[in-house]
Computed example of a mutant assay.
Amino acid sequence: MTQTDTAAAPRMIAISSGKGGVGKSTVTANIAVAMAEAGLRVGIVDADIYGPSIPGMLGIETQAKPQMAPNGMVTPAQGHGVKVISMAMLSNDDAPAILRGPMVTKYLQMFVRQVDWGPLDVLLLDLPPGTGDIQLTLAQAFPLSGAVVVSTPQDVSLKIARRGLRMMEQVKVPILGVIENMSGFTCPTCQTVTHIFHDGGGEAIAKELGVAFLGKVPLDPAVVDSGDDGAPLVKAAPNSPAALAYRQIAASLMGDTGPTGGLVTPFAWTLADGTGKPASVPATGAGPDRLITLESDAAGLILGWGDGREQRLSPRDLRIACRCASCRDEVTGKRLLDPEIVPLDIAITRIWSVGNYALGLSFSDGHDTGIYTFTQLHGLQGAEVEDV
Rank of each mutant, 00 (worst) to 15 (best):
Q3V: 08
A9M: 09
M12F: 13
S17N: 11
S17A: 15
G18L: 12
A29M: 10
A29G: 09
I31F: 09
A32T: 13
A36G: 10
G39V: 05
I49T: 04
P52Q: 02
G56H: 15
T62I: 10
K65Q: 09
K65R: 15
G72I: 01
M73T: 02
G79H: 03
H80K: 02
G81H: 01
G81P: 11
K83T: 07
V84W: 00
I85N: 04
M89H: 14
D94T: 12
R100Y: 13
K106P: 06
L108F: 09
V112P: 00
R113Y: 01
V115D: 02
L125S: 01
G130W: 11
F142Y: 07
S145R: 14
A147Q: 05
S151K: 00
S157L: 01
K159H: 04
I160Y: 02
A161E: 02
R163N: 15
R166M: 15
V171L: 12
K172L: 03
M182P: 02
G184T: 05
F185R: 00
C187S: 10
C187D: 14
T194K: 08
H195F: 13
L209P: 07
L209A: 05
G210D: 02
D220Q: 07
S226Y: 01
D228P: 02
D229L: 13
G230W: 07
P232F: 06
P238F: 10
N239E: 15
P241T: 13
A242F: 09
L253V: 14
L263P: 13
P266Q: 07
F267V: 04
K277N: 04
S280W: 04
G285V: 14
G285Y: 10
R290F: 04
R290E: 12
G300D: 09
G300T: 10
L303D: 03
L303Y: 09
G308F: 06
G308K: 03
R312L: 14
A325K: 15
R328P: 00
V331R: 15
T332S: 15
I346Q: 05
I346Y: 11
W352N: 15
S353N: 13
L359K: 07
F363W: 12
H367R: 06
G370C: 04
I371W: 10
L377Q: 04
L377V: 11
G382P: 05
V385W: 06
V385G: 02
E386I: 13
